[in-house]
Amino acid sequence: MVVFFVVLTAVAIGASQAPMMLRNRWFREMAASALFLIAGSILSVIAWKMISVPSPLNILITIYKPVNNFFKLLFS
């Protein structure tokens, strides 16, 4: 149900923007827009249905944990 609405929104956005881009033959922009729409739809469905996914900020933790440990060693 939610998936249907999200896909509908994405298709509506795409349809409202496509005529202008087709007229100017902006194929690169259409591809980028389509890619972002797909990513946005997937993320929106996950967010609306509150599916539990690991947060992307975990990448930050993985990268910076050694740095923080290094500084802790340096100062203690």
């Binding site: 994405a10 690169r28 990513a39 946005g40 993320l43 967010a47 992307p56």
Partner: peptide, 27 residues
């Protein structure tokens, strides 16, 4: 970055991404 000719087509899709990310980034 993608060397596009205008940033206007990207605004609405990015809005969807931000909406999704706003809930996902922190439980």
């Amino acid at each position: 970055f993608l060397k596009l000719r205008s940033y206007k087509p990207l605004i609405l899709p990015t809005g969807m991404i931000v909406f999704g990310l706003a809930t996902i980034i922190a439980p």
